[in-house]
């Protein structure tokens, strides 16, 4: 129970610290932090799929992009749509899409599954490119961020700091829920399926349904991240649904490490900061990102989080390994 209290205190401290940021950071950095939080959700959703369930998908961007486009299209076409309604429409669409695509693809395993997700992503991309009248094709869609309607009052979230607070609370809470999710019955079921799927079946778990539910859930989380991405940039183009966006999430997750829940959050931070600085310095920043990726995969396969854990264990040498109990699995997965 001590640990439980600690984590609650930690969460409160974290949110308070987050709430202070607009007073400390410049607008530019606050804007970047907003972006980091949004991409952290995207990375966390992917890690639930890859790190926890062991499903390698090359098509996560189709959900991110779908969420992003649905939000933009809804805001463009529905007069007076509030911000949260747009997000909910987007979320609901990706839930349906995730369920349908999952039912089709999850019959296949391993590399077949991975290749099929890649193919589906390419299909989504092609549709977004060609369906000019809805998606704007190459031109993309510009939107204006709608107001936040809280029932009794409407708040404008057009400024950098007010939007940051919205993201901190809504996306932050969603990430927090993802963390909680890894401890719930479903979260554990998914994790154990990767450990020993056969045994799970013989213990009464329908593993096919579980996988479908998880695929749908992570897809919807990615869609949610996509919707907030649209709201953040107030613009969406086919880049959001392209293979590049899948590559981006792979990079974030691999840089941060799949072994821990927070690894991908760290990965999103590093990725966005690097992208911002590198792309200002050199037009070949994707090359440098690629080199970092290869380096990470070859020499630091557990990602930054693994390195940090190792260093921490060095310093507190006496710390016994078994104290963490259920977490053990997460740390040893890769």
């Amino acid at each position: 129970m001590k640990q439980k209290n600690n984590s609650y205190i930690g969460i409160i401290v974290l949110f308070l610290l987050g709430a202070l940021m607009p007073f400390i950071l410049k607008r530019y950095h606050l804007n970047m932090l907003t972006e980091i939080i949004i991409f952290a959700l995207y990375a966390v959703s992917y890690n639930l799929l890859l790190g926890y369930a062991g499903l390698l998908s090359f098509g996560h961007a189709m959900f991110f992009g779908l969420g992003a486009f649905v939000a933009a299209v809804a805001i463009t076409h529905i007069q007076g749509l509030t911000l949260l309604s747009a997000v909910i429409i987007s979320f609901a669409t990706t839930v349906i899409a995730g369920f349908l695509i999952g039912s089709l693809l999850l019959r296949h395993k391993g590399s077949y599954f991975a290749l099929l997700t890649l193919a589906f992503n390419a299909l989504f991309y092609a549709v977004a490119t060609k369906w000019h009248s809805v998606t704007g094709g190459d031109d993309g869609l510009s939107i204006s961020r709608p107001e936040l309607n809280l029932g009794f009052t409407s708040l404008s979230v057009s400024s950098v700091s007010s939007f940051y607070y919205l993201i901190l609370v809504v996306v932050g809470a969603t990430i927090l829920f993802c963390w909680y999710f890894t401890h719930t019955a479903m979260g554990k079921t998914v994790l154990l399926m990767r450990e020993n799927e056969e045994r799970m079946k013989f213990l009464g778990y329908n593993t096919n349904i579980s996988r479908l539910i998880l695929f749908t859930f992570t897809g919807a989380l990615a869609g949610l991240a996509g919707a907030f991405y649209t709201l953040h940039f107030q613009f969406v183009s086919i880049s959001a649904i392209s293979i590049d966006m899948t590559t981006a999430v792979l990079l974030m997750v691999f840089i941060g490490g799949t072994g821990t829940f927070w690894g991908p959050i760290l990965g999103a931070f590093v990725y966005i900061v690097f992208q911002n600085y590198l792309s200002n310095i050199t037009d070949r920043w994707p090359l440098f990102m690629g080199i970092i990726f290869v380096f990470m995969v070859l020499y630091v396969p557990g990602g930054l989080s693994h390195t940090i854990m190792t260093i921490r264990q060095w310093f507190s040498g006496r710390k016994d390994n078994h104290g963490d109990g259920p977490i053990k699995v997460e740390e040893t997965s890769s």
Partner: peptide, 16 residues
């Protein structure tokens, strides 16, 4: 893992 399956706590998103 087996006990909670017996208790129907297999796919719950909210209960630990």
């Amino acid at each position: 893992t087996g006990v909670r399956s017996r208790y129907g706590l297999r796919y719950n998103f909210f209960k630990r």
